[in-house]
Amino acid sequence: MLAIVKEIKDVIKWRELLWQMTSREIKARYKQSILGYFWVILNPLAQMLVMSFAFSLILRIPTNAAGNIPYSIFLFVALLPWNLFANSLSSACGSLVSSSSLITKVYFPRSILVLSTIIAKIVDFLFANIVLIFYMVIYQIPINFNLLWIIPIFFIQQIFTLGLSLFFAAANLIYRDIQYLLSLGLLLWMYLTPIIYPADLVPSQYKIIFQLNPMAVIVNAYRQTILGGGVPNYTSFIIAFLLSLIVLILGLSYFKSREKLFADNI
């Protein structure tokens, strides 16, 4: 816990750099493409359409939660946060390696490199949500105050993402295989998370796997609050929060223990 407070103080001291790095990330990425930022919307939209076709029309996966919710929205609500998680993690994993020329030359808190990639992905995520909002208006999905739950849910997701990102970024600097391992892991993980299917379809003897998977709890919580207008399952929610916090503490302490050797290992 103490390490987290210290790191936060360090990052605040270097906030100008964090800001510059984040805007570099955002500005540079789409500068050369014609559609520019439109890609962040187009990408999940295309993904959603094809997946809806495959899983709803062909495999006929039910949405359960409420009969009148179209599968495409049901999928999208979970897919967007999952994409945020997966994209953050995979780009954070390469963030130290791609800035190796900086790491060997100038001192600054290295966690800024990881943080700035994650923040840039959050900006993408916010843009991608425009489509979701649009969709929800068209289909007139009712919302209520329980929607505010998405704030703590999002917060937990970011704690979890940051913890894992710090770990993978530092580990990838030593063994570059980590990035390939991660993309395989993310692919499998996606199927073990109720994104394309509703959580209630999971047989009860396997429920434990989903309770211990913070992403499953998070994704399910988004659905319950946005589409169902209900509240998340408190027990699972608290377990997910504690697990995420542990992951962050472990991730950060691993990162800090390796940090001094980053320049040696590149």
Partner: peptide, 12 residues
Amino acid sequence: ENIYLNGAILGL
């Protein structure tokens, strides 16, 4: 833009 970025890297 690079002046601002590099300045920040050097702690400005």
